[in-house]
Amino acid sequence: MALPQILHSPQSSSSSSLIPHKPYLNPSSYTKTAVNFFTPPHLRRQRRRKPNSLSCSASSFSEKHHTNPPKSNDVVELPLFPLPLVLFPGAILPLQIFEFRYRMMMHTLLHTDLRFGVIYTDSATGTADVGCVGEVIKHERLVDDRFFLICKGQERFRVTKLVRTKPYLVAEVTWLEDRPPSGEVEDLDTLANEVESYMKDVIRLSNRLNGKPEKEVQDLRRNLFPTPFSFFVGSTFEGAPREQQALLELEDTAMRLKREKETLRNTLNYLSAASAVKDVFPSS
């Protein structure tokens, strides 16, 4: 089976200090081939090819992303990593760190709580206000003082004040949580099941286009409640970080799932058209 992926190529990194530990997404055991997602024209970016592009793996999602969830009105200071990617709660992010200022940050984190803020930035839109905490769950320090990290997305945050910019960014942040659902919980669960169904159809059709056996797609939701499942779905939209950022910033699970459902529906329409063309013109 295959993981759905945004139609255009992933954007390249603007930071020389961070390299992904793996060059591709590898969620769990059910993806070996990427599936292209349809991206609306206003979200597309020009294809650029540079080495060391970052990618965020969504290989390990759990129902609880932290043991002691902070209160939404808590204000804390958090070191920040501005990156050309979006980290979601529950997602896995492999990184290699070699720039001096971030090595300094890692030395500090190793003596504290191993948590920092990942926040999306690009040259066109600047740095976002909403990001996600990355907690270091595995690390390896090399002889030249570089670090290999495996991080996991935890709670979301909003930057309220920049405390300092050197040697690395530190900001005051408040925690961001989805609002309680306004409708029935069953309605939210139904919406999550519909999104999962679209994902399965996209994977199935993509496998067909790539000449792979159309096997039955296994359980993608894995007993996740709607909110963490919506984060998982958003994390698979690799290649469209601005759309991912918009999903991350939403404070309503239903709105996030509805937006993801629409993207999946557009993708399915695109793949259906591509499949029809391939049937008529097999050589193409």
Results as ranks from 00 to 15, higher is better:
166 K>G: 12
260 E>T: 10
217 V>P: 07
168 Y>D: 06
173 V>D: 02
114 L>Y: 12
246 A>M: 15
187 D>G: 03
195 V>I: 05
71 K>P: 05
220 L>E: 11
12 S>D: 12
60 S>D: 14
142 L>P: 01
123 S>V: 09
265 R>F: 02
56 C>I: 15
39 T>R: 09
216 E>R: 13
222 R>H: 11
233 V>E: 03
75 V>G: 00
145 D>M: 11
65 H>Y: 10
30 Y>C: 12
233 V>I: 15
203 I>Q: 08
162 L>P: 06
62 S>T: 15
184 E>A: 15
70 P>H: 10
279 D>T: 07
58 A>C: 06
1 M>A: 13
194 E>W: 04
101 R>P: 00
162 L>D: 12
229 F>Y: 07
15 S>P: 02
92 I>C: 14
151 C>V: 13
106 M>V: 06
98 F>G: 04
15 S>R: 05
87 L>I: 00
195 V>E: 02
141 R>V: 14
112 T>Y: 02
6 I>F: 04
131 G>D: 01
221 R>A: 05
110 L>I: 06
6 I>N: 11
16 S>I: 06
279 D>Q: 10
236 T>F: 04
70 P>N: 09
128 A>T: 05
108 T>G: 12
174 T>P: 02
234 G>F: 00
146 R>G: 10
33 T>N: 08
158 R>P: 04
220 L>A: 08
8 H>G: 12
180 P>Q: 09
264 L>P: 05
20 P>D: 03
234 G>W: 00
195 V>C: 07
115 R>G: 06
68 N>I: 11
260 E>L: 10
250 L>I: 09
158 R>C: 09
245 Q>L: 11
183 G>P: 07
61 F>E: 00
64 K>I: 07
99 E>Y: 11
212 K>E: 09
283 S>P: 00
244 Q>S: 10
145 D>F: 13
36 N>E: 14
218 Q>G: 15
100 F>L: 10
207 N>F: 04
160 T>G: 09
73 N>A: 14
44 R>A: 15
243 E>N: 11
216 E>W: 10
78 L>S: 01
202 V>W: 00
253 T>E: 03
207 N>M: 10
262 E>P: 04
108 T>P: 04
110 L>P: 01
17 S>K: 07
54 L>F: 02
109 L>P: 02
180 P>R: 06
217 V>F: 05
267 T>E: 00
219 D>K: 09
29 S>D: 13
254 A>S: 10
192 A>Y: 01
101 R>L: 01
176 L>N: 08
82 P>E: 00
71 K>T: 12
35 V>D: 13
117 G>C: 09
238 E>I: 15
209 L>A: 08
100 F>V: 10
158 R>L: 07
27 P>V: 09
105 M>D: 01
266 N>H: 09
226 P>T: 02
196 E>F: 00
51 P>I: 02
3 L>S: 15
134 G>Q: 04
65 H>R: 11
235 S>M: 05
45 R>H: 14
203 I>G: 03
138 K>G: 07
176 L>P: 08
90 G>A: 06
132 C>F: 05
280 V>H: 03
197 S>G: 04
252 D>I: 06
3 L>K: 15
253 T>L: 01
205 L>A: 01
126 G>D: 01
32 K>Y: 06
14 S>H: 15
147 F>Q: 07
218 Q>L: 13
191 L>F: 01
254 A>V: 05
119 I>F: 05
135 E>M: 09
183 G>K: 14
282 P>C: 01
50 K>W: 05
260 E>F: 01
219 D>M: 08
